[in-house]
Amino acid sequence: MEERNLICINCPMGCALAVTMNGTEVVKVSGNTCKRGDIYARKEVTNPTRIVTSTIRVTGGDESMVSVKTKEDIPKGKIMDCVKALKEVTLNAPVCIGEVILENVADTGTDIVATKNVRAV
């Protein structure tokens, strides 16, 4: 049995988690205050994922950049591919919060959505 210590990143409480592993199998999670901590710990030791946030250039709007995010968390190893894919995109205003900007970014099965409104000028 092996124990791994993690910090839950799901909320600012930042609970200190202890994951007991048997090889690659999770036996027990402790230290979490809520259910999200348990889910996070199990994912983090098998397939760690993150939400990625970035910006994309916009033309013809009242802002020159629009902020975006991955709709769901994507595998950690895909973060750089995801950011690279965003660099190749330029949008035309208007852009609305929640609008899908890019589907299935970097083959993650997750879409990129806008997180800010940009009005056309």
Binding site: N10, C11, P12, I51, T53, S67, K69, T115, K116
Partner: peptide, 16 residues
């Protein structure tokens, strides 16, 4: 622009 806002207020994780 990062996420992590609003977990308490809206019960979901939003960007700024």
């Amino acid at each position: 622009i990062h996420n992590g806002f609003g977990l308490h207020t809206f019960k979901e994780e939003l960007t700024g």
